[in-house]
Nucleic acid binder design. Structure first.
Lengths: 229, 229
DNA sequence: CGCGTGTTTGAACAGTGTCAATTTTCGTGG
DNA sequence: CCACGAAAATTGACACTGTTCAAACACGCG
């Protein structure tokens, strides 16, 4: 489309790229010909057999790749080694409804103005990317939990996570920022099941539940073990 | 920390920012003082009561915001209006195991070299960001499914999604790129349940299942209705 | 003090998981 | 091309977890 259109192009498009079927979908789509040549120079095309592991969890020398054909899977190891697929990659929106849960203060920026800021500050955009990847990581951890863990383990995991994020001064005592109904919506369970699991943890002496929202972790080790279940 | 350290600073840090408790965590962390002043100029701090809706799904004039205090929730509307929480935001990794599912070709780049490319081509980094946000969106859709949908609806959703992504030439007939066991790992169900749901769809005339991996969608409307479950 | 919302508790039921046996599919060698 | 064996998929019976429906309870507010 845009290769040596006006006739006088100096660069020669690598043949592999010129014929590539994901040329306009992949990262390469953002590059002009010269950039594409540069990118081609640092990369190699490899064919891999089914079943091969491309990246190991925690590998610091992780590689990045564009899928030209075939299907790849992203996995997570569950509690006892059982693997769970958390995403698929093939060759080739960001729309939610946000509602304030507790009273909150916000710094609000118009989208267009923020875009200008991003243009002027590449580091900002990079952080935004890191954040998005972090959120993706969270989402996949959640998927793993929803797909594999039972109600008790979900509840325990939830309490630990809330203790980590809500228990700022005191990591043992905190108030949940939401109702049982909202906890249910988050964990994919009914209000009744949430309540039963909470009561069960209370009866076993793992936590105390003062008032409607309060949580006191009495035995963190037990709670962690319940979360692994 | 880094405000007018060396004495001769020209810019004045907005008092709100100087005292901000998420100053070093939020997007602002990437900005030097001048940039912070600029960002402060385009934004306003707002206090919102619990329960208020900040962004509506599909709103084109979506706003971006940094949470200074409080807790927000990201929601998705389920099939019959029931909402499901898919994420939380508080004041203030990217590690998976990737395995090749089918034979595949890849363009592999060393991480460091790719980083250089990103530095030289801002548009590339922007696309990377968009991709990450897209993946996040996918992950949250999946969370919704895992949290709310029953086995039959999950299976139907999965088949529709695979038809969309695998049924390149023919949107009706395609081969699954994975075994029943892998489908189960993806949908958070056992092999047996996957098999039962598949058989059920076959018996009802919704799909045909030639061979071990083949899928033919006989009644897409029925399949879509099953996916809404 | 009573009312309403939200939470807890109980009992019956439906849906999945588990265990186990059978059938089908697919690759290999005859 | 057919036969064989291993791996995967299907099917059935049963236990168990979580949902549903319903009622009792606790707390905050007028």
């Amino acid at each position: 489309m845009r290769s040596s259109a006006a006739g006088g192009a100096i660069v020669t498009l690598p043949p592999r790229c010129a014929a590539c079927n994901v040329r306009d979908d992949a990262l390469c789509a953002t590059l002009e010909d010269a950039g594409l040549v540069a990118l081609h120079g640092i990369g190699r095309r490899r064919t891999m057999p089914a079943g091969q592991v491309l990246v190991w969890s925690g590998d610091p020398n992780a590689i990045c790749a564009t899928v030209v054909s075939g299907v790849l899977k992203a996995m997570r190891a569950g509690p006892e080694g059982r693997e769970h697929i958390v995403g698929l990659a093939f060759a080739g929106d960001f729309v939610e409804t946000i509602r304030v849960m507790t009273d909150a203060e916000l710094c609000v920026y118009p989208r267009a103005a923020l875009q200008n800021m991003l243009d002027a500050h590449p580091a900002m955009e990079r952080l935004l990317l890191r954040r998005a990847l972090g959120a993706l990581d969270d989402a996949r951890m959640w998927m793993l939990m929803l797909g594999r863990k039972a109600a008790g383990a979900r509840t325990a995991t939830f309490l630990l996570e809330m203790a980590r994020r809500m228990g700022q001064p005191d990591p043992v005592r905190f108030d949940l920022p939401m109702s049982r109904s909202e906890v249910g919506a988050l964990l994919g369970m009914t209000i009744e099941t949430v309540s039963r699991q909470m009561t069960s943890l209370k009866r076993r002496g793992v936590v105390a539940l003062p008032g409607g929202r309060g949580v006191i972790i009495l035995d963190r080790a037990l709670l962690a073990r319940a979360a692994a279940g």
